[in-house]
Measured scan of single mutants.
Amino acid sequence: DTFTFTLDGIEVRLHGASEELIKTIEELLKRDIRWEELEKWIREWEK
Rank of each mutant, 00 (worst) to 15 (best):
K40F: 10
T6S: 08
T24L: 15
E26K: 15
T2Y: 14
D1N: 13
R34T: 14
L29N: 01
E44F: 03
F5N: 01
E27A: 10
R34P: 06
K40R: 13
I33S: 04
R43L: 10
R31T: 15
L21A: 09
E46F: 14
G9T: 03
D32S: 11
V12M: 07
I10R: 10
G16W: 07
E36Y: 08
R31D: 09
I42C: 03
D8S: 04
E39W: 10
W35K: 04
E46D: 14
E26L: 15
G16S: 07
T24P: 00
L38G: 01
G16Y: 08
K47M: 15
E19T: 14
L29I: 13
E26D: 08
E39L: 10
W41A: 11
D8W: 03
I42N: 00
G16V: 05
E39H: 09
E39Y: 09
E44H: 05
F5Q: 00
L29V: 07
E36C: 07
I25Q: 00
L7G: 00
L7D: 01
F3T: 02
E27G: 10
F3I: 06
F5E: 00
D32I: 06
R31P: 04
K40V: 12
E20A: 14
T24F: 12
L21S: 04
W45T: 04
E44T: 02
F5T: 01
I10H: 15
E27D: 12
W41V: 15
T4G: 07
W41N: 04
T2C: 07
I42T: 01
R34Y: 06
I25N: 00
T24K: 15
L29H: 01
L38D: 00
E26A: 07
D1Q: 15
E27I: 12
V12Y: 15
R31F: 11
E37G: 04
K30N: 12
L21H: 05
K30D: 08
D1V: 13
F3S: 01
W41S: 06
E37W: 08
E26T: 13
E39N: 07
K40G: 09
I22K: 11
L7N: 01
L21M: 15
D8L: 05
T24I: 13
A17C: 08
L21T: 11
R43N: 12
W35V: 04
E11M: 05
H15D: 14
I25G: 00
R43F: 08
E11A: 05
F5C: 03
T2I: 12
I25D: 00
T4M: 09
I33D: 04
L7F: 13
D32M: 05
D1M: 11
F3L: 04
K23A: 14
I25A: 01
H15W: 09
L38S: 00
E11P: 03
V12P: 00
W45P: 01
F5A: 01
D1H: 14
D32R: 00
E11V: 11
S18N: 10
I33G: 04
I22Y: 03
K30L: 14
D1F: 14
W41L: 14
E46M: 10
L29T: 02
E27Y: 10
I42A: 01
G9K: 02
K47Y: 14
F5D: 00
W35H: 04
K47A: 15
I42P: 00
G16Q: 06
R31A: 14
E19M: 14
K23E: 10
